Amino acid sequence: MTETQPPLTAHRFAMCFSSTPRGARLARRLCGTRLDAWGVPYGSDAHDTVTAVAAELCANAVRHGHVPGRDFHVLLTADPATGTVRIEVSDTLTERQPRLPAATAPDGEGGRGLLLTEALADRWGWSPRAGGGPGKTVWAECTAPCPD
């Protein structure tokens, strides 16, 4: 008797990036490329939403979670069965925990990344970095239907 396994339905992309603005841009672009390859095409609302959230989380890891000599890690997963894309960005700075700003001056720069993430994502949050290492993981989930 031959056993067959059900097909793998979840997509997964993981990579470490240098904790620099250039690393954040590369992470955003590679997330966009993966989404397109998984059937969430460039220019679609779902693609634009997920890449905007990825850009914000990666930029925050560089700006607020940077530790010299340490990279940040991105994990992007998509589950066609639920139509959910999840992005996780881990940095190595434990002391600065993500929070929404109480108020942002209309003419001030910065401070809007998590507000944008909250507006675009269906859910978001953070947790201590898995595996016992220093730092935290900020995650967001977005609805993004993708075919099998």
Score class of each variant (00 low, 15 high):
A102K: 12
T94A: 14
P106F: 10
T92I: 04
Q97R: 15
W124H: 12
P98L: 13
G125R: 03
R96Q: 08
D107C: 12
L116P: 00
Q97F: 04
G113S: 08
G108C: 09
Q97V: 15
P98H: 08
E118V: 02
P128V: 13
W124L: 10
A119Y: 03
E109Q: 10
T104Y: 02
L115Y: 02
W126E: 01
D91A: 05
W126A: 13
G125I: 04
W124A: 03
R129G: 01
L93H: 10
P98T: 07
S127C: 08
E109A: 14
R129E: 02
G125L: 09
P98C: 13
E109D: 13
G110F: 02
S127G: 09
A121I: 08
E95L: 15
W126V: 08
P101S: 09
P101N: 01
G113K: 03
P98W: 04
G108H: 11
L114E: 03
R99M: 15
G108E: 15
A130T: 10
P128N: 11
R112W: 00
E118Y: 00
A105T: 06
L116N: 02
E109I: 14
A102T: 07
A103M: 11
D107F: 10
T94K: 12
L100C: 10
P128T: 07
P106N: 10
G125Y: 01
A105D: 11
R99I: 13
R99G: 13
A102R: 15
P128S: 13
R129C: 01
W126K: 08
R96H: 12
L100F: 05
A121D: 00
Q97N: 12
E109H: 04
L93K: 09
W124C: 05
A121S: 13
L120H: 01
D107A: 15
A130L: 05
E95V: 11
D107H: 12
T94H: 13
R123N: 02
W124E: 05
W126N: 05
R112V: 03
L115G: 08
G108S: 14
A103F: 04
A103Y: 06
D91Y: 01
L114D: 05
A121K: 04
L120D: 00
E109N: 08
G110N: 01
P101I: 07
D91N: 12
Q97Y: 06
Q97T: 15
G108L: 09
R129N: 02
L114V: 08
L120V: 02
G110Q: 00
D107L: 15
D91C: 00
L100T: 03
G125F: 00
G108R: 14
E95D: 11
G111R: 03
G110M: 01
R123T: 07
R99E: 14
A121M: 09
G113D: 04
W124R: 06
R123G: 02
L100Y: 02
G110I: 03
L93N: 07
T92R: 14
R112D: 00
W126Q: 04
G111D: 02
W124S: 08
P98K: 10
R96Y: 11
G110E: 01
E118I: 06
G108N: 07
L116M: 06
A102C: 03
P98I: 15
L93Y: 06
